[in-house]
Amino acid sequence: MSRSNVFDLIGPIMVGPSSSHTAGAVRLGGMARKILGEEPVQGTISLHGSFAKTGKGHGTNLALIAGLLGMQPDDERIPEAIEMAKERGQNFSFRIADLGDVHPNTVKFELLGKTGCHTQVVGSSIGGGAIVIREINDFQVEIRGNYPTIVILHQDLPGLVAQVTLLLATAQTNIARMLVSREKRGAQALMVLETDEKIEDAVLALMRRLPKIYQVLAIEPLE
């Protein structure tokens, strides 16, 4: 285990019973909501491994939906999350799935937002409430929600990464981590940047105007 701090050992404040199956599940739902970028109205949630096997007794279903509704892991309304979603007319269904060679506590969200956006997110709860998002719309990523993050869908062509990082440099935004992946040479590609500072809306607007950039998504860190 990497170096911790006192509040990792006395804390976090959370709704039980399990940091991985409950608190981590709320955070996974929360990240999926942030990645969708709007209120989800419909979704299919696929549970894998231990989430599928022991999720019921840990309230994992409730916790995942609580996250999708925007709750934090210490929200005492988590046990009522499914009821709340129904009242709001949000329709989420669960299924058990084999998501392949992934962490035992893995979930896949297929979400439809209120303005019609579709997103597919795969994430894992890796212990002690920590999470990692592994896949967005079939692209491999690694987002832990510790930093402000931008996800950019673009065409794979020379110089584009440089243009994006130049915009960040000009805004005095420091990049903590960066990951690039692509379907194949010259096809669609994905850039994931984690930054130390919050990324200003103006910078995001400039990125969206760059040629061959299809989508720019800013994800705030988890609380």
């Binding site: 006395i10 404040i13 959370m14 709704v15 039980g16 019973p17 608190a23 002690g128």
Partner: peptide, 21 residues
């Protein structure tokens, strides 16, 4: 018990052991 019943607790160090401290 509060933890097992989906109530609010402080993990110390974990949720499963939250009663001792």
């Amino acid at each position: 018990e509060v933890n097992a019943c989906m109530g609010k607790i402080v993990a110390a160090p974990t949720a499963g052991s939250c009663g001792v401290i």
